[in-house]
Computed example of a mutant assay.
Amino acid sequence: MDMVNWLPEHSAALQDLRARGLSYSEIADTINATFSTAYTRNAALSRAQRMGLAGLDRPEPSLPGHLDPPKPALPEPPRIGRLREGRAELKSDLLRWPKSFTETVEMPQLRCAAVAPRNLSLFDLKRGDCRYPYGGDADGETMTFCGHPCRPGSSYCTPHFHLSRDPEASTRPVLNDAWLQAIGAI
């Protein structure tokens, strides 16, 4: 990464252009045209963050395909003395903290299977044993498996089979006539 030292007049121009509501791409283009530099959008954004300006409101992006209104011609580059006066006005807006979420969220009722697992390791599982996992959530915690006899056609025992299915979704047929017609099976 190439470290770029911003001259004070470049930083002053950045502050003034950001206060006018220009995007960081437009700011970089304007500074490059004015001072014959080669700043990128990301360089302007990073400098603004270091100056404490990045939290200012962004202008609304234009939608693709719509004509943007004509941009007014930019006046000559800003003077440093004038910007120092305007900087005090921006001070209150510099730090915008993220809004905290204060409303409580009701946790859904968790379902559980009414079966005491045998807690078998992966090596102890035999063909036809339930493979519903237990544990392994924390680092270093071993994962064990239910180990009860499986339901026919499933890798889970009957209580874990029902636990792993959405009761509302499993009552709807998966292959209805409209779906079969769409794929050309009917």
Score class of each variant (00 low, 15 high):
P75D: 14
E76H: 13
P77R: 14
P77M: 11
P78I: 04
R79N: 10
R79Q: 14
R79M: 11
G81M: 07
R82S: 13
R82P: 01
L83F: 05
R84A: 05
R84Q: 08
R84D: 01
R84C: 02
R84M: 08
E85T: 06
G86D: 12
G86C: 08
G86W: 12
R87S: 09
R87L: 14
R87M: 12
A88W: 10
A88H: 09
E89L: 15
E89F: 03
L90T: 05
L90F: 03
K91T: 05
S92C: 02
S92A: 15
D93T: 09
L94D: 01
L94T: 05
L94E: 02
L94G: 02
L94Q: 13
L94C: 06
L95T: 05
R96V: 14
R96Q: 11
R96L: 10
R96I: 08
R96T: 05
W97I: 11
W97Y: 12
W97A: 14
W97D: 05
W97N: 04
P98N: 07
P98M: 03
K99S: 09
K99E: 12
K99H: 02
K99T: 10
S100N: 04
S100T: 10
S100Q: 12
S100L: 14
F101D: 08
F101A: 07
T102F: 06
T102L: 14
T102S: 08
T102K: 09
E103I: 12
E103C: 02
E103G: 06
E103W: 06
E103V: 11
E103D: 05
V105I: 15
V105Q: 05
V105P: 00
V105K: 15
V105E: 06
V105C: 03
E106C: 00
E106W: 02
E106K: 03
M107I: 09
M107F: 07
M107V: 09
P108W: 04
P108T: 02
P108N: 02
Q109L: 14
Q109M: 10
Q109D: 06
R111E: 04
R111Y: 02
